[in-house]
Design a protein around this nucleic acid. Structure first.
Length: 890
RNA sequence: GGGCGUUUAGCUCAGUUGGUAGAGCGUCUCCCUUACAAGGAGAGGGUCGCGAGUUCGAGUCUCCCAACGCCCACCA
């Protein structure tokens, strides 16, 4: 167990020990569990379900961290907060993994048969199911594990059937023969978005098709000569004079002997290739359209495995040959028979299967589709009218552009792992029905195809909430969800489909905000991938630097524009160092709270420094709340880092050391130290949950605080109210006056450094202060003494001559003189002062240029003019005093 | 072909109502001062990609160009 003894806390923060114990503490007390019966306003997020067989990668780490930040922030801000975890059955991806395992054993899925194979895959999925979500625990994810879902579980499957049947009944799902992207390796159709195009070097072959019954030929350019056996026509442009004579005539397909017509179609580009195209409707999407227009029957010559079909159209020596081998052979044959006229190098885009990288074979086959146009209308409207907002906004354009040109979605997959399509064929009559319930299995046989994985993930925001049961507590309380957090790479795959389906089936947008973040890349900006070997394992980073360090670093790298994030191992030192800083500052505070009472700060007894830090904290709290609401999450990391390190640690804690020595100030200083630490930890908690909880548990809290953060018998920072702006903690005047402390101390430190004065030699200083500034100097004397190593402070009148061998710091309207006797080199001091003057002169010059510009005086806002004048006066004043100093020295 | 993003200190990047440029890392000096060397103190470092325009004033708004990156469409 974690020690509660302050003296035993290690000087270096031990992330590993802390994180494990703290997460257990939250889980054991069920602090992530949402209450659907709560009266609090709801805040809900559904996780983008990672693949069930997946392993946690940096992309998840970022995505989960951002969700957790939002969830923790809202939970602390008084919302009933639900974060639904779960996994995706990931049709092709999972099936591929299992098939690979089988292949290692020398068997294929066909050897097992569908039923056995599914059993095998279920076993595999169940075995890995909890792995990735368990890894998310190491990220500190505060999701509600009691509500964990799986896209292939009973409830989700039920939702899938419901949706399928309803869409079918509405005529929005249809089955038909169309050209689809076919992956010969997966032996399945895939959708357009699952096809990625890459530019490849290839060849363009010009082939001569002799005219029938007369001399002459038409020359056709193709990149795919092996499909020649599937040719059903040659097409030319109707206005192409080169070929107008030939339209309607017939040619003989080389190597085949079949006769095909020459047809005219607008589709043909006169200027490309030879201006004549061979039409192969079974194996090319454009050709399919042309063929349909001209009533030509397609001829299949390539099968589902990408091999030449053993049919009458294809010469026997090519039967069963792989499409690429066949291509080579065909080229050879064409060349031998003198049909091949020319071979050219050619660059073209080739479609690849997103899952396995295999070159797509456009294939005419019978598939199921969702008619998207009617569904897209509402999905477009919802974004246009602001029911759904994208952050950053530019993704809206991207989404709308895609939606407005949407094409039908091919949802059937010739796989086994997935939701089997709820359509049934009559064994005798062949009649087909679509139904939620399986009719008599003796008579009806279910469709063998399964659905695209994204079909079920498209229902995720409501299928996880109990839909189609719209009376379920979760659906009523937590649907629609609030925010969806994801990367831009799945806007089309997932976000667009959730919006479409959500609107269609719940009449509500499934979420109101889509928060899109950048993608994680390696330090060179390359996408991380296993094959490139440039991945960084988040679990390793957590082991090495700690979860909070990982989270903080990644958060700090998130920009408002959602730029991609480049990371390297060393970058996480940033977060680790900050965690260590928090740890040690906390240790200091805790060590000095040993005899603190249990009360709140006495606001009537605050010192100027107390007021300053409270004022700063207050404005930080205000800013952080605004930033999170506006999804400027990276900014919150920077603001908190700056506040905690550069304000609280560097200045307030040092000042507190002085105040703690003063018995009259000690008690209230302890309270301020504790209060600011407590609030800082709360502000930081969404980003760095573990360390903040760990420290918070060690703070001797007031009774109010403990009650406000209580669940059962325990209080926790993760349940404590998030700090908000407080009117009673605004101390503008004191905050401004503290600048004098900083300027004074910095100036004295500069003098010490410039003249190499050792730390163990203290200064005696003389202050010549203005009337306004003198009382402030008196109030802050003790801070200056300790922090700038000053022994004595005396106040002199400006008329008293300055000691000849002294350095001088001009601070605001006042002058601080440091007599240095033989320690000072007057030339150096002159140089030092000159540098200051130069800076002032430069600033003054540009300001005066403004004032002297009548247009500026006429157009600029009055406050700015006033401010500028004031600043000039200030500069002039300082400048004059430094100049007189210099002349005295020289 | 269409669209989007990026270009700011040696490196990685912040910088939303236009008002004299910031951080982290790195560099140079000094310091183990009883929270922290994963630390403290001080210092140096930028004509904000190029060109023009709007404006009293532009890193910030408009246009052009360049380089790099991404997305969509696609030619057989």
């Amino acid at each position: 167990m974690l020690t509660r003894n302050i003296q035993d806390l290690p000087t270096v923060y031990d992330a590993r020990e802390t994180e494990e114990n703290i997460y257990k503490f939250w889980e054991e007390n069920e602090m992530f569990k949402a209450d659907a019966k709560s009266q609090k306003p709801p805040y809900s997020i559904v996780i983008p379900p990672p693949n069930v067989t997946g392993v946690l990668h940096m992309g998840h780490a970022l995505d989960e961290t951002l969700q957790d930040i939002l969830v923790r922030y809202h939970r602390m801000s008084g919302y009933e907060t639900l974060w639904v975890p779960g996994t995706d059955h990931a049709g092709i991806a999972t099936q591929n993994v299992v098939e690979k395992k089988l292949r290692e054993k020398g068997i294929s899925r066909y050897d097992l048969g569908r039923e056995k194979f599914l059993e095998e895959t279920w076993d595999w999925a169940n075995a890995h199911k909890s792995r990735i979500l368990d890894q998310c625990k190491r990220l500190g994810a505060s999701f509600d594990r009691s509500r964990e879902r799986f896209t292939f579980d009973e409830g989700c499957s039920n939702a899938v059937k419901e949706v399928f049947v309803k869409l079918y009944e509405k005529g929005l799902i249809y089955k038909g023969k169309y050209i689809v992207n076919w992956c010969p390796r997966c032996r399945s159709a895939i959708s357009d978005v699952e096809t990625e195009y890459v530019t490849e070097h290839g060849h363009m072959w010009e082939i001569s098709y002799p005219l029938k019954n007369e001399s002459g030929a038409i020359i056709v350019a193709t990149t795919r000569p092996e499909t020649i056996f599937g040719d059903v026509a040659i097409a030319v442009h109707p206005q192409d004079h080169k070929y107008s004579e030939l339209i309607g005539k017939k040619v003989i397909v080389p190597l085949s002997g079949r006769e095909i017509p020459i047809i005219a179609d607008e589709y043909v580009d006169r200027n490309f290739g030879t201006g004549a195209v061979k039409i192969t409707p079974a194996h090319d999407p454009n050709d399919f359209e042309v063929g349909k227009r001209h009533g030509l029957k397609p001829i299949w010559v390539i099968d589902g495995e990408g091999k030449m079909k053993a049919c009458g159209e294809v010469p026997p020596e090519l039967h069963g040959l792989d499409r690429y081998e066949a291509r080579e052979k065909v080229v050879g044959m064409l060349s031998y028979e003198k049909f091949l006229l020319r071979t050219r190098e050619h660059e073209h885009n080739v479609g690849k299967c997103q899952r396995c990288g295999t070159t797509i074979e456009p294939l005419l086959s019978e598939q199921w589709f969702v008619k998207m146009k009617p569904l897209a209308e509402e999905a477009i409207a919802a974004v246009k009218d602001g029911r759904i907002k994208f952050i950053p906004e530019r993704w809206e354009k991207n989404y709308l552009g895609w939606m407005e040109n949407i094409r039908d979605w091919c949802i059937s997959r010739q796989l086994w792992w997935g939701h089997q399509i709820p359509a049934y064929h009559h064994k005798v009559t062949g009649e087909m029905i679509v139904a939620k319930e399986n009719p008599d299995p003796n008579v009806w046989e279910q469709e063998t195809d399964v659905l695209d994985t994204w079909f079920s993930s498209g229902l995720w925001p409501f299928s996880t909430m109990g839909w189609p049961n719209i009376d379920s507590d979760d659906f009523k309380k937590f649907y629609p969800t609030t925010t969806l957090v994801t990367g831009f790479d799945i806007i089309f795959f997932w976000v667009a489909r959730m919006i479409t389906m959500g609107l269609e089936f719940t009449q509500k947008a499934p979420f109101s905000t889509v928060y899109i973040h950048g993608l994680i890349r390696d330090e060179k900006g390359q996408k991380m991938s296993k094959s490139k070997g440039n991945t960084i394992d988040p679990v390793e980073i957590i082991d090495k630097y700690g979860c909070d360090a990982l989270r903080f670093t990644m958060t700090s790298l998130c920009t408002y524009g959602g730029q991609d994030i480049k990371i390297s191992d060393e970058r996480f030192e940033y977060g680790r160092n900050f965690a260590n800083k928090i740890w040690n500052a906390s240790r200091f505070v805790l060590m000095n709270l040993d005899d603190v009472d249990n009360s709140n700060i006495d606001l009537s007894k605050l010192t100027i420094a107390d007021k300053w830090i409270l004022d700063k904290l207050n404005s930080v709290a205000k800013e952080i709340n605004e930033d999170i609401k506006n999804y400027r999450i990276g900014e919150t990391a920077h603001v908190l880092y700056d506040f905690f390190w550069n304000y609280y640690c560097d200045w307030y804690v040092e000042i507190a050391k002085v105040q703690l020595k003063d018995e009259s100030l000690k008690l209230n200083t302890q309270r301020v130290l504790r209060y600011v630490l407590d609030m800082s930890l709360r502000l930081l908690h969404p980003i760095m949950p573990h360390i903040t909880e760990r420290v918070w548990q060690l703070i001797p809290h007031t009774e109010d605080t403990l009650v406000s953060a209580k669940k059962g018998n325990n209080s926790a920072i993760m349940l404590a109210p998030y700090p908000v702006y407080r009117e009673d903690l605004v101390f503008t005047k004191e905050a401004k006056e503290m600048e004098l402390v900083f300027e004074t101390i910095k100036s004295l430190r500069n003098v010490r450094q410039t003249f190499n004065i050792p730390m163990n030699l203290n200064f005696n200083i003389e202050i010549r202060a203005t009337e306004d500034e003198k009382p402030i100097f008196e109030a802050i004397e003790s801070y200056v003494k300790r922090m700038a190593k000053v022994d004595s402070v005396t106040y002199e009148d400006e008329s008293v001559p300055q000691p000849p061998k002294s350095a001088t710091a001009v601070v605001f309207g006042s002058k601080i003189i440091i007599p240095l006797e033989n320690l000072i080199d007057l030339d150096t001091e002159v140089q030092r002062q000159k540098k200051k003057v130069d800076k002032l002169i430069a600033e003054c010059k540009s300001l005066e240029a403004r004032i002297n510009n009548p247009k500026f005086m006429a157009n600029a806002p009055v406050e700015l003019v006033e401010q500028t004048k004031l600043r000039i006066a200030e500069i002039k004043d300082q400048e004059a005093r430094i100049m007189s100093l210099i002349s005295n020295l020289s």
